[in-house]
């Protein structure tokens, strides 16, 4: 019987095992970004900006040129890159501590300048690499190693909804929040990431995709239970959707 391969790892992704923990959805987001680079046949003219955290090893997994940025500074580094290579596809890949805490200044101003960048923001509600401390996106009541009684919004403040926040800026052409907790959501996430890169190809301005993911290890849950928490607890606080889309056409 003749068969055709209908699903395989994208070629922009190196054929190596990742260092991510079992069930960590960085791997899914990596694959979706790589599928997009394959779609635009753009790996050769793509420059990735790696951030600090579990996502730093971008260069080990993507077959593209990469520059490493200091913690939170990826949008500034990417700005320098993009201003030199205007026709390249430049993206940052940042976690929630990196983007929504130490790097809030850089992300807000890169968006506000309308830099022609694509930003992939991986929100797993915790600091993964450092061992599960409270993040700017940690949910109210969520226990972490620095909020052992649960996040107390009276003293710890409230989780930041970055996709909504950035959507208020005139320089942001596209801002969406997606999840990868179900096959349907993975498909939607892939479309959003493709759109965010497409806007850069078309020179429309700053494009931002927040992806809700799990951190089974630091959540203290098995991967399937952690994945179910996304729908049960995370999405109700961080609603999925497109918060701004200055595409100029309705697709």
């Amino acid at each position: 019987m003749v068969a055709r391969k209908v699903f395989a790892r994208p070629v922009s992704l190196k054929d190596v095992a990742t260092h991510f923990c079992p069930g960590c959805q960085h791997g899914v987001v990596h694959r979706l970004v790589a599928e997009t680079l394959d779609h635009f046949n753009a790996a050769g003219r793509t420059i990735g900006v790696a951030s600090v955290g579990c996502s730093v090893f971008l260069y080990d997994y993507f077959d593209i040129n990469v520059v490493e940025a200091p913690h939170g500074r990826a949008p500034a580094v990417a700005t320098g890159v993009k201003r030199v290579h205007k026709n390249s596809l430049v993206f940052t890949y940042q976690g929630d501590g990196d983007l929504a805490a130490i790097g809030t200044s850089e992300i807000i101003h890169a968006a506000n300048r309308g830099e022609g960048l694509t930003v992939i923001f991986v929100n797993n509600t915790t600091y993964g690499m450092t061992g599960g401390q409270m993040a700017p996106t940690t949910l109210p009541g969520q226990r972490t190693t620095t909020s052992s009684a649960g996040r107390n919004t009276a003293s710890d403040g409230h989780p930041i909804r970055m996709a909504e926040l950035l959507a208020t800026l005139d320089g942001t052409a596209y801002s969406a929040r997606v999840a990868v907790d179900s096959p349907g959501h993975v498909l939607e996430a892939g479309k959003a990431i493709r759109r965010a890169f497409g806007y850069q190809v078309e020179g429309r301005g700053f494009a931002f995709v927040e992806v809700l993911t799990t951190c089974p290890t630091n959540w203290g849950m098995d991967p399937v239970a952690a994945n179910r928490r996304i729908a049960a607890e995370v999405i109700p606080f961080f609603p999925l959707g497109t918060f701004v889309d200055r595409s100029g056409d309705e697709r």
Binding site: M1, V2, A3, V6, F7, R9, V186
Partner: peptide, 24 residues
């Protein structure tokens, strides 16, 4: 049915899906 839902969820890109050519 080669729906590829398993492959889409796999964080390690460890799953490839094939479909019968006839079905395609």
């Amino acid at each position: 049915t080669s729906c590829a839902m398993c492959a889409r969820m796999c964080p390690d890109a460890a799953i490839s899906i094939y479909r019968e050519l006839k079905a395609l």
